[in-house]
Computed example of a mutant assay.
Amino acid sequence: MLNYRTEGPITAPPLLLGPSLGTSYALWDAVAPELSTAHRVVRWDLPGHGGSAADLIGAGATVGDLADLVLALADSLGIERFAYAGVSLGGAVGLHLAVHHPERLESLAVLCSSAHFNGEKPWRERAERVRREGMERLVESADARWFTAGFTVPRLVQDHREADPGAYAACCDALAAFDLRDRLADIAVRTLLVAGRQDPATPPAHLREIADAVPGAALVEIPGASHLAPAQCPEAVLTALRTHLDGGARRGMAVRREVLGDAHVDRAQARQTPFTARFQDFISRYAWGEIWTDPTLSRRERSMITLTALVAHGHFEELAMHVRAARRNGLTAEEIGAVLLQTAVYCGVPAANSAFATAQRVLAEEEAGPDGG
C-alpha cells in the first residue's frame, strides 16, 4: 500500500493530494493543514519516495498503474468518491482518474502538470541515467527545475536525494508513455488547472491546452511560481483550491434556500460573524451539501425524520423552521400532524404536546398569509 498521511475530520469530504516526481507528501506541508479544516485530507507518496515501498511498481510502469495504487489506498480507507489535486506526475494521475474512473471523482485540480510531458525520449534517457548512476547528479539540478532562482525547500531536495533510483526510473517510464490529449474532451468532472508562470517543466501553455479541451475547466496562473507551486506559493495555491473545492458549499446553499426559504437563510447569513463563519460553512457544506442532497431519501422523507428528531430533543424553535420546510417539501398539514402523533408514542406526550402547539402556530401563520388575512 502507498504510504500516506491523513488530516482533518474523518467525516469531512475527502480530498486526496498527489505529489510530484522526486518529492514526498511534504510537498503539501504548507497547504494541507489549512485544507484539512474543511476536508479529510489524504496525502500519499509515490513508490520509492517518502515512506512508500519501491517495489510497488517496476520498469515499464504507467500512470494507470499509479492510479490503481491510489484507488487501492482510497478503498482501504473506505473512501468511495473524493476530490483530487495533484502536482506534475500527481496531476497526471488525476487526469487518468478523470478519464478512466470518473465515478470516483467529485472534482479535479491539476497543478503544474500536463496531458503529455514533451515526448518519450527525455524521460527514457533520464530513467536509463538514474538506473545507471543513481540520484545524486539529478539532485544537483533540482532547485533549477523546481523553483525560481534563490528559492529552495531543503526537505524536498532531501526527498529527491533519498528516492529509490529504480522506482524513480519507473515513474519516468510512466511519464514517457503518458499522453491523454485525445481524451481530454471526455472529462466531465469539475476541473481546475493551476500553472506556475515561471515553470520550465510544464509551462502555462501545457495547462492552457488542458483547460481549452476540458469542458467548463478553469485556469489559474500564479505569478512567481515555478514547478512546485504548493511549496513556493502556498497562499496562492490555497486560495485557488478553496475556491474550486467549495462546490459542496455552493450546492448546499442552494438546497438550504430551497428547503428553508430565502428569508430564513438571508437572516442567518446577516447574523454571521468571523466567529460563526466556519460553523455556517459546515452547515452548508455538510448538512445541506452532503446529507440533504443524498438521493437515497426524498426531501419529504427527510422532513419527516427531521421533525421527529427535533421533537425528541425538544428543539422547538428549530421545529417551527422545519414545519415550514416540511410544507415546502410537500407535506400536508394532516401528514405533519400524523408525524407529530407518532412522536407522542415514541418521544413522549409532553414533547408531542409542545410540538403540536408549535406546529399549529406555524400552520396558522401560513394560512393567514403575509398580510395576516
Rank of each mutant, 00 (worst) to 15 (best):
R5P: 01
P14A: 14
L17T: 08
G18R: 03
G22F: 05
V31K: 12
A32V: 00
S36E: 12
R40T: 07
D45A: 12
D45R: 07
H49K: 00
G50I: 02
A59V: 09
G60M: 05
L77E: 10
E80Y: 05
R81K: 14
A83K: 02
G86F: 11
L89S: 04
G90Y: 05
A92L: 05
L105C: 03
H116E: 15
N118D: 14
V130Y: 11
V130M: 11
E136F: 04
R137F: 07
R137P: 05
L138D: 15
A142N: 05
W146H: 09
A149M: 00
F151D: 03
V153W: 07
R161H: 13
A169V: 12
L180A: 15
R181K: 14
R183T: 15
D186K: 08
I187V: 15
Q198N: 14
P204M: 11
R208I: 00
I210V: 10
A213V: 02
P215H: 06
L241E: 13
A249V: 15
A249N: 09
G252K: 01
V259F: 13
V259A: 15
H264E: 10
D266Y: 04
F275G: 04
Q280N: 12
P295D: 10
R299T: 03
L307C: 04
G314R: 03
A320E: 15
H322M: 04
G330R: 12
I336Q: 06
A344Q: 02
P350D: 07
A355V: 08
T358P: 02
L363F: 10
E365D: 15
E367A: 14
G369M: 10
